[in-house]
Design a binder for these strands. Structure first.
Lengths: 92, 92
DNA sequence: TAATTTGGTTTATAAAATAAACTTGTTTAT
DNA sequence: ATAAACAAGTTTATTTTATAAACCAAATTA
């Protein structure tokens, strides 16, 4: 009947983050915050969950003197996103 | 960028219920439980929320001697479901 | 050098989802 | 007729999520 919806992706912010990352190769924290409109605290928590799931990688670097957090989608994340979209389509 | 996802629909069970109701005119509790695979308790809670939002109507009747709960999608629910699908499409 | 801003993290609170236990009544077996 | 099992839900309690608010360290600006 309906396919399972990966609960890790089935939330507005994490889905938006994945949606951005899938088309962009890499994106930093500030970019993601601005595009999604999320608060920094929430974003911090949610990208950590995506990382723990192996859906994205998080690299901490510096841009000049300021810290910079770069996120990239991982192969597992690409697969998960793809599956999620397929599953969703069974609902409509 | 991304459209808001109606939180009332953005959950697996409520979305599945709406997805069933939108194409079926009316469905009873047992039908919804079997199709969605949800526990009765969860289904009871979730259809109540959909009713409170005005997305569906719930009619309590009897089929012979046994209680029967019939759900129907409401105009507001059709609109909400339609908007939800449109919004989702901005994510992929 | 004091105040503000940047780039976050941590902690606390609120909202959801889920399961487990319970209720009311019916059917079946004894 | 009575007890056991079943049906259709509901209520309550627990866990999980989401979100916001407070906080921190370093950098920049006035």
């Amino acid at each position: 009947m309906f396919k399972e919806l990966d609960p890790l992706l089935h939330t507005q912010l994490r889905l938006a983050v994945m949606s951005l990352l899938i088309s962009v190769e890499e994106a930093d924290f500030v970019f993601l915050r601005e595009k999604t409109g999320a608060t920094a605290g929430n974003l911090s928590v949610q990208i950590e969950k995506l990382k723990e799931a192996g859906y994205i990688s998080i690299e901490k670097t510096f841009a000049g003197k300021m810290p910079r957090t770069i996120c990239r989608i991982a192969p597992k994340g690409i697969k998960a996103f793809d599956d999620y979209v397929k599953a969703l389509k069974t609902y409509f």
